[in-house]
Design a protein around this nucleic acid. Structure first.
Lengths: 202, 202
DNA sequence: AATATAAGTCACCAACCGGTGACTGTCAAG
DNA sequence: CTTGACAGTCACCGGTTGGTGACTTATATT
């Protein structure tokens, strides 16, 4: 009808987001996406070669990890160890709250765990760049520590990811209520404690 | 052929395990399972009502978390704080190595993250009982601590789960090689460090 | 030996999946 | 005014999914 290629492409890209958010990444297929976009599925092949091509376009537009620059700039203001600890806490707690609030991001994290293809690999690469940049920032300010900061940070970050994803299916995990504010307050507090203990141990 | 109901049921149950291990939980369906078992799929409905019924039977037979008794008995031997730290390290590192070695268990963890139904809820319930029992054990011996032990343990355990699952799709995460021995050694070391720091902080 | 019960087989169903070829309608360049 | 390029539509393909009814065959009891 509209006879506007770019608009149609955008409709398809947007439809991917809608379906991921509403039905999860497993429901993303040519039939569902085209139906959601109100467009024939053959256009996916014509405009994006492939469903993967469409997904790549979707991810590229999303640009989830664009806050690196902002964070790394904050590292430069750091002077004392307490500053470093405070910023580190802020980063990790921020990650937790960000993922917890963003259901679309949760779906992508889950997708990464389940599937390996060009798209998820591309996302992983981007995420990796962000993670290493932040770890380098922390590493620079703390200097020589007894503990392996990147390893500890990775473990804790993984814990954040897992608990958020787990909270989608279950209420209580290890006795902690993952669907209540008090439960997440406990997690957040522990997060801060672990960071403080780790960075003060040298 | 064999005309042996119990043997046929067992064939189906075993086939579930084979498929989970070989193709992942997403591939578990009536068609695939019956084909693998060399048995008609209608027998799944006759003997187990449902695919879910078959999966429940599978899980019940597996009994993944049967090592609770052994662990809780070890708590009684504890006398000093160092004993407690040592045992806690042993438990968490043991968890890590166990999951890392057991691909079928990894599939179930992933399944738990993706799906909520009677089967996964039943597994979760069993896991929950184990986790709480262990945490109670640790809690008893450490007494009042500054940190929230259950919350910290949950975070760390989640980290273990996530990293193992992530290692299936990606080599490097936050600069740590999740497919090399040295990478896992770093994780393990950090795990022990975090436990020690946490339990000594009171 | 006849019969009932239950084990196992077979053919089929509707719904969905990804994917493709042939088509129609529109718009702009010649 | 014609023609060609292209946006968009439609019908169909082979394959797989979960699920069911009708059937055959074996075994145990009377």
């Amino acid at each position: 009808m509209a006879r506007d290629k770019e608009a149609t492409k955008q409709k398809l890209i947007d439809a991917v987001g809608v379906i991921i958010l509403r039905d999860g990444f497993t429901s993303v297929g040519v039939n569902a996406v085209s139906k959601e976009a109100g467009v024939d599925k053959v256009l996916i092949y014509r405009y994006f070669n492939d469903l993967d091509g469409l997904l790549k376009a979707y991810i590229t537009q999303k640009d989830y990890y664009s806050n690196i620059a902002k964070i790394t700039s904050e590292f430069e203001k750091i002077e004392t160890l307490d500053d470093a600890i405070s910023l580190s806490k802020k980063i990790f707690v921020g990650q937790l709250k960000n993922i917890l609030a963003n259901k679309e991001l949760q779906e992508i994290l889950l997708w990464e765990l389940n599937t390996k293809n060009e798209v998820t690999s591309a996302i992983a690469k981007e995420r990796e760049a962000q993670g290493v940049a932040i770890l380098n920032g922390i590493g620079q300010i703390t200097g020589k520590t007894k503990v392996d900061i990147p390893a500890a940070a990775t473990l804790i970050l993984g814990g954040i990811y897992y608990l958020v994803l787990r909270s989608r299916q279950v209420d209580v995990f290890n006795g902690i209520d993952l669907n209540s504010q008090t439960g997440w307050d406990r997690i957040e507090k522990s997060l801060e404690n672990l960071i403080e203990l780790t960075l003060k141990d040298f």
